[in-house]
Design a protein around this nucleic acid. Structure first.
Lengths: 245, 245
DNA sequence: CGCGGAGTTGAACTGGGTCAATGAAGGTGG
DNA sequence: CCACCTTCATTGACCCAGTTCAACTCCGCG
């Protein structure tokens, strides 16, 4: 069992990287580290800081679930095919975010996850959960808390998306990115938009032209500054107001 | 510990009621029943078939989490106050549905749940989870599977709502109600719409006038039959087509 | 009987989608 | 190194789905 900051792969550490203590997988990692002895004979394995290239798949829809992941650096998008066969972006993952919990129940992933840039992830193999013991109980407890969080977050996101207009959705989206970065110890006010405008549009249920227009309007209002894929949050209170309107 | 079909409250059994084997809480109930001896000293308590009046609250947002619920008969709606203080319907619960899982992680409920009609619920008090033992592990395992399901369902619902027009949202909504009733052993083709048009509109992110107009249009097309609060699913394949369009 | 809430229907307005043109950036091969 | 291509982004013009506002009906309830 490896301790928290041991390297398992060659990787450039100069990139913005989330600290373990700020990571969504940390509660589980701690259990695994702490319970090393109890879990020693189990198949739970942590592999840290695996590098990934832009465009590479973390896993695919309908493939069997075998591990949970946490973004260490970089970013990912989740894509789902709806019934009519169209691709839809269903989520973005930033450093510290947990990926793959949706697969636990049925042991099958329900969407595809792709790296938006050069990234690194931690991987916790759970294809063979230990069958019993104190370590297992703690692991399960941590899983329950994490899944509960996931349920809550999804509820909030859904609520805010469904009944808001384009301005509100985009303002909420930007603030969401910003606070998530803040929570994870990254900059709240300078965000790297690694995803395309089309990705954002798909995620928010808008046309990409609307995303483009709204962003430039926000910039004209002095709410944000945007050039290419760098977004500066200039006036978070203003954005907050937009979401309420 | 009570066995599955023991009554704990006086309640008129003539109403449409879901069987235990079709109930979302059943995996947990089974664990509790099966592990009665192991859990005997714990604080996990099942209370079955508690009656509730129309308008009565099951729990309120910000109140501390202490139990999971399953709808036995009747129906409920979940209401959340968004940041601007407006009420928003975030979900409907039918017989067999599980309520309250969103509160597990933070031990606090994130929305309010109200009975839409005379209903009954089963209640599993979890404010004091057992600390260890085989029974606990099974309980945790069942919780994990349930939460995982919840995450998946939320994803599907969100996806289908965000990027669809009014017709698609309403058709999907009706089919969703129908299949859920079917899964739980109730009629798929004759649904009781215990919620108001405004509730449906709020849930789907539409104006109540749009819901009204769309329903009558569906009726004119021969897709459904609707009078007051009884909805007949006449042409499910047709509705399915509408969702894809 | 009169009141209030829920539902339906009509008419007018508008936010955002669609279509189209153009520009900017990155990749590839000669 | 440049020419070409592809993909992504921006901006303008137009149009329609769905909101808003308003009138009216229906029903339950004091």
């Amino acid at each position: 069992m490896q301790t928290c900051c041991e390297q398992t792969a060659v990787y450039d550490p100069s990139r913005q990287e989330v600290a373990c203590c700020d990571c969504g997988l940390d509660p589980l990692c701690q259990v695994v580290d702490y319970g090393a002895r109890e879990l020693a004979d189990s198949k739970v394995v942590l592999r840290r800081r695996q590098p990934m290239q832009r465009g590479e798949l973390l896993f695919s829809a309908k493939h069997s679930f075998s591990a949970l992941f946490a973004v260490k650096s970089g970013s990912f998008k989740a894509i789902s095919l709806d019934m009519s066969g169209k691709e839809r972006v269903v989520g973005f993952y930033l450093p510290g975010d947990l990926i793959g919990a949706e697969g636990i129940a049925n042991r099958v992933h329900s969407f595809t996850v792709r790296a938006l840039e050069e990234s690194s992830i931690c991987r916790m193999d759970l294809d063979q959960m230990p069958q019993s013991g104190r370590g297992n109980e703690m692991l399960q407890g941590a899983l329950i808390r994490m899944l509960g969080q996931e349920v809550n977050i999804n509820h909030l996101v859904t609520s805010s998306l469904i009944q808001q207009n384009a301005d509100q959705r985009l303002a909420a989206f930007i603030l969401n990115l910003s606070t998530r970065c803040g929570m994870r110890g990254l900059s709240q006010y300078q965000l790297g938009l690694s995803m395309s405008r089309s990705d954002i549009a798909s995620y928010l249920g808008l046309a990409r032209e609307t995303v483009s227009r709204t962003l430039t309007r926000f910039q004209n209002y002095g709410l944000i500054g945007i050039s290419k894929h760098v977004l500066k949050v200039v006036n978070p209170e203003g954005l907050q107001k937009v979401t309420l309107a």
